[in-house]
Design a protein around this nucleic acid. Structure first.
Length: 450
RNA sequence: UCCUGAGUAGCUCAGCUGGUUAGAGCAUCUGACUGUUAAUCAGAGGGUCGGGGGUUCAAGUCCCUCCUCAGGAGCCA
């Protein structure tokens, strides 16, 4: 039998299986300390961190000098025996026999001391190697895997939407524009939803998963110009089904992370007790109930007029801002879905509530612990004439939406869907301070490098 | 886009009401040390004070202007 060579490689996360045996690790120097005839190398290999000890008396002079010459982030291969050792971080240690150096690294910019945000972002390509960033990226990978497992395991088909689109999905001016051969302008997608609706009419239950782009000039710790979104879309689902699915998904993601990312939470010093509580049913309230709650608890709407801040009791019809959402969520230890928003503040494709035409069958899920809005969704307008009317009212180019209207012409059915922001979810679960830390290469209004 | 704040050594910062040759810690380099965890100890090198203009005998410090960055708001996932 032929065994591929890479399958015999040793990794730090598996060390406990090799106690007493000789292993060969490949990686980078994370940290160094020395004490005369002893040299401690904290080595990382992408799967974990392990302390390796070089004692002058038990290796060749050449090997000891190699160990002495190492610097932070030098790349190397270490061969030695695995030992349980309570004094070592992680509980295991390598007694080094031999060292092979790939490269000595000079003047690595990120030192074990503190750095400013700006400096770290300029060195994002190197910052990813730091233990906290490493932990966040592993949680991100777990969140993405949980999302895919959840949908794939529940009868959904992956149907990715195009990134280059001829028009705005939501008809705003916040789109990145590019030239598209002889066909004029194209735009980077700000949502895959409209195409997901077409897919749902073909395959029933689908999800689209990819990057989306918003040219909003936002500058906050929960906005990126390029972010990842998963958008399920289901034929024959009404708003209630939609909300049930959203709760199932979020519960699954959080519980999966708790099951598989304990080590990462430890590195981040993330208290997981609040996450343990994220089990169905979540809280739900209508927009109208939320407004009444704001009024009763004296959370005002603050308007700026001529530079002066004027507070007034929160009026029905106004969309919630960050202060309102945070106030509402302070009372909850689990996510809360707010549904049935005023039609004026929501997108054209959302279906009016037959019982109250002033509101649409829309829902947002807010996460506790200042996680903010992680999901936005709705039941879609499935009536041709009503949708046509909305497009006209919103001054959208009707020609561009002809294919979308076709979906209401040829076997229209009730259907619903939502979008979950991957970075907002990872930020909430990991407890990261800023959304820029939960994506490998954040794209923000003032930053596109590296 | 609006409001607020910040740019001084590789990094994080101090530098008073303008006044000799601009400071510290860490990092780097040299040396000592058999249990270090952001090691410790001794020594060395390291600066166009964000750019431009102005006031002054004298500007890191005061004024104008531009640039860059951060925090918040709005918008949203």
């Amino acid at each position: 039998m032929i065994i591929s060579r890479y399958k015999t490689y040793h990794y730090i996360e598996d060390l406990k299986r090799y106690v007493g045996q000789e292993v060969t690790l490949r990686g980078w120097v994370y940290h160094l300390t020395g004490k005369g005839k002893l040299q401690f190398i904290l080595m990382r290999d992408g799967t974990g961190i392990c302390q390796c000890v070089v004692f002058k008396g038990s290796v060749s002079e050449e090997t000891f000098q190699s160990a002495k010459s190492l610097t932070q982030e030098s790349s190397l291969q270490i061969t030695g025996t695995v030992r349980e050792e309570s004094r070592a971080p992680g509980g295991f240690e390598i007694d080094v026999k031999d060292i092979k150096i790939y490269q000595i690294c000079n003047n690595y910019p990120i030192t074990p001391k503190e750095h400013g945000d700006s400096f770290l972002l300029e060195h994002r390509h190197l910052w990813l190697r730091s233990s906290q960033q490493h932990a966040i990226m592993r949680i991100r990978a777990a969140v993405v895997k949980a999302i895919r497992d959840f949908f794939d395991g529940n009868g959904f088909k992956l149907m990715d939407s195009p990134i280059l689109t001829p028009t705005a999905c939501e008809g705003t001016s916040t789109l990145f524009e590019t030239e598209y051969f002889d066909l004029g302008k194209a735009y980077l997608s700000q949502s895959g939803q409209l195409y997901a609706e077409a897919s749902a009419m073909a395959l029933g239950k689908v999800y689209t998963f990819g990057p989306t782009f918003r040219a909003e000039r936002s500058k906050t710790r929960k906005h990126l110009t390029e972010f990842w979104m998963v958008e399920p879309e289901m034929a024959f689902f009404d708003l209630n089904d939609d909300m049930d699915l959203a709760e199932d998904l979020v519960e699954y993601i959080v519980q999966y992370c708790l099951k598989t990312c304990q080590r990462e939470f430890d590195v981040l010093e993330r208290d997981t007790a609040p996450l343990e509580k994220v089990k169905r049913p979540f809280y739900r309230m209508t927009y109208t109930e939320a407004v009444e709650w704001l009024q009763k608890n004296n959370i005002p709407l603050i308007r700026k007029i001529d530079g002066k801040e004027l507070a007034e009791p929160f009026p029905w019809g106004e969309d919630f801002g960050a202060p309102q959402e945070e106030a509402i969520m302070e009372q909850f230890d689990k996510p809360c879905i707010i549904h049935r928003y005023p039609a004026e503040v929501k997108a054209f494709y959302m279906k009016r509530d037959p019982e109250n035409p002033k509101v649409v069958l829309a829902m947002d899920m807010l996460a506790p612990e200042k996680g903010g809005e992680i999901i936005g969704g709705s039941q879609r307008e499935d009536d041709y004439d009503a949708l046509y009317q909305r497009i006209i009212e919103n001054n959208l180019p009707i020609e561009a939406f002809q294919w979308y209207l076709d979906l209401r012409k040829y076997g229209s059915v009730p259907h619903s869907g939502f979008g979950l922001g991957v970075e907002r979810t990872v930020k909430w679960i990991s407890g990261a301070k800023h959304i820029r830390e939960v994506i490998p290469m954040p794209r923000m209004i003032h930053r596109i490098v590296p």
